[in-house]
Amino acid sequence: MTNHKGGCLCGAITYNVAGPLRQIIACHCIQCRKTSGHYVAATQTATASLTISGAVTWYQSSDKARRGFCGTCGSPLFWQPGNRAVTSLFAGGLDGPTRLKIVKQIYTEAKGDYYALSHTETSDQDPCAG
């Protein structure tokens, strides 16, 4: 069985994923940029496969989704849509080698003007809206 561990910068929140992870999607939408300070590179798993230790602070960023972060160090960690039993994990919070790759970039038209993309793939569905 696939098993991945991760957590926040200060160690107050740790998590374990006992199941597969989706390949990475890089989202350049405004909300992901504001959440992370750049763009978000995230994988995803079934929420039932995720065990979290520590007190996550959840922010209901829209009627469609909420975002989870560490209230101590501020590390952004999770994104959950309200209508599906999945949790996106910010890839930078994963420990050790993941063997995951960025396979898609979305909302590239909203990217910051201070960086360039070598390749883009856009989508009209925002999995990060919220």
Rank of each mutant, 00 (worst) to 15 (best):
D124L: 12
T2E: 06
G74W: 00
C10G: 12
I25G: 06
S36E: 07
Q80N: 08
A46Q: 10
T51K: 15
A48I: 09
Y107S: 00
R22C: 02
W58Q: 04
Q44A: 13
N3C: 14
A116K: 03
K64V: 08
L21Q: 01
D124A: 11
T51F: 02
T72S: 10
S118A: 14
Y114P: 05
T87M: 07
Q23E: 15
A18G: 10
G19P: 03
R67L: 09
G112N: 10
T51L: 13
A18P: 04
S61F: 01
G92D: 00
I106M: 09
Q60I: 07
H38K: 11
H119S: 12
I106N: 05
D113A: 11
F69H: 12
N16I: 13
T43V: 07
C8R: 06
V86M: 05
H28E: 07
D113L: 05
R67M: 12
S49W: 00
K104E: 15
E109C: 09
Y39Q: 12
G82N: 15
N83H: 14
K104I: 08
A85Y: 06
S88W: 04
T14K: 15
Q80T: 01
L100R: 04
T98E: 03
T57A: 13
P97G: 11
P97Q: 03
T72P: 03
D126Q: 11
G112T: 03
D124P: 13
G74I: 01
A110E: 12
G130D: 04
G6E: 02
C29K: 13
Q44T: 08
R99Q: 15
I52P: 08
A116L: 12
A116T: 12
T122Y: 04
R66E: 15
Q60L: 01
R33P: 07
Q80A: 08
S53W: 07
W79K: 01
G82E: 14
T35M: 04
G93C: 13
G71W: 07
D95P: 12
K64N: 08
Q80I: 00
A110H: 14
Y107V: 08
H28A: 00
E121F: 02
R33V: 02
K101D: 11
K5D: 10
Q105A: 13
G71Q: 09
P81E: 01
A85G: 02
S53H: 13
A85P: 10
N83S: 13
Q23F: 12
Y114I: 11
K104Q: 15
T14S: 15
L21M: 11
Y15L: 02
I52K: 09
T87G: 06
Y15H: 10
M1A: 14
F78C: 00
N16V: 14
G92Q: 10
I52D: 04
S62M: 10
I30V: 10
R33W: 00
T45Q: 01
Q31P: 03
V17P: 06
H38V: 04
Q105N: 15
K111T: 06
C32D: 01
S36N: 06
G71A: 05
P81V: 09
L117C: 10
T51S: 14
T35W: 00
L94C: 07
G11I: 08
G68F: 05
V103R: 05
Y59K: 01
Y114H: 14
S123N: 11
S75I: 03
C128W: 00
C27M: 02
T108L: 07
T43N: 05
E121A: 12
I25L: 07
F90D: 07
C32S: 04
G130I: 06
G74F: 06
R99E: 15
A12V: 08
Y107N: 00
G82C: 09
S118E: 09
R99K: 13
